[in-house]
């Protein structure tokens, strides 16, 4: 319950303390502002964020599903060690990688591009996807797959036609997690992007907040818009999250 109140306070703040005339002008500013305006930057950032998040989620999901299947269904040497290494990357603070990554991205010409950001964000997101999905895949009874394979389906075929449909909650949970992670990522975006060509929303908003420190209305308007896409994703997928995790990650 407490989590609801501050949100409402945020929305009512500009109404209560700043005259009404400001209200929608901020949104207008963001949507209609011409070149070089706050609005232009914001719209560009929104687009970049969307590209980065969608790109990251799609790559991570494809790659993650394949990997998670291997972890869940196949027996091979160093299986545990490999999974462990994947998960351990999560403990690395991003600062530890910044400068060398900057150099790599630069030599590939990927600095200040959404492609570059997608690349580094995938490295953050994939371990998560592997973890959620491999746990979920394990809860799907082997018999389903066995039956399909007796009918002559290959392993990959079974993965697509049997395991994936059965793992829908887990997959939705993974999509939601990775989308939120990618949308929220700040440090890489701060260092690796600088212009409207690739700057994502968190970076743009931190600049807003710096320039208009006391114009909370504008920050709030921008913030609400920035929060909308992840909110929509979260509200659509939230019910799968519980079942996705209940069956998978938590119970094992």
């Amino acid at each position: 319950m407490a989590s609801v109140t501050p949100q409402r306070v945020l929305i009512t703040t500009p109404l209560r303390w700043i005259p009404d005339t400001f209200d929608f002008s901020r949104y207008g500013q963001i949507f209609n502002g011409g070149a070089d305006s706050v609005g232009a930057t914001f719209r560009a950032a929104m687009m970049n964020s969307a590209v980065v998040a969608v790109g990251t989620v799609s790559i991570s999901m494809v790659v993650g599903i394949l990997g998670a299947y291997a972890f869940a269904r196949l027996r091979f040497r160093f299986r545990r060690a490999t999974l462990m290494i994947f998960l351990a990357t999560y403990m690395l603070p991003q600062i530890a990688l910044l400068i060398p990554l900057y150099l790599i991205l630069n030599s590939l010409g990927l600095l200040d591009t959404t492609t570059g950001l997608i690349l580094v964000d995938c490295a953050l997101v994939i371990p998560f996807v592997l973890w959620i999905l491999s746990n979920y895949f394990m809860t799907i009874p082997d018999e389903l797959e066995e039956a399909a394979r007796i009918d002559g389906t290959t392993r990959l075929g079974a993965l697509f036609w049997v395991v994936l449909p059965a793992a829908r909650p887990g997959i939705f949970a993974a999509i939601m997690f990775s989308f939120l992670l990618a949308w929220d990522e700040f440090m890489y975006a701060l260092i690796f992007t600088s212009s409207d060509a690739a700057k994502t929303l968190p970076v743009a908003i931190s600049e807003f907040a710096g320039r208009y420190t006391t114009d909370f209305g504008l920050v709030a308007a921008g913030g609400i818009l920035a929060a909308l896409p992840p909110l929509i994703v979260a509200i659509i997928f939230q019910r799968y999250v519980v079942s996705g995790m209940a069956a998978g990650a938590v119970k094992g």
Binding site: Y102, D112, I191, S195
Partner: peptide, 23 residues
């Protein structure tokens, strides 16, 4: 000329991180 603008608070660190690449 391609200009890029960053907040003052981020300017110093941006110059530092971009230096090796000559951006």
């Amino acid at each position: 000329v391609k200009p890029t603008f960053v907040a003052y608070e981020a300017l110093h660190d941006k110059i530092v991180t971009s230096a090796p690449a000559g951006t």
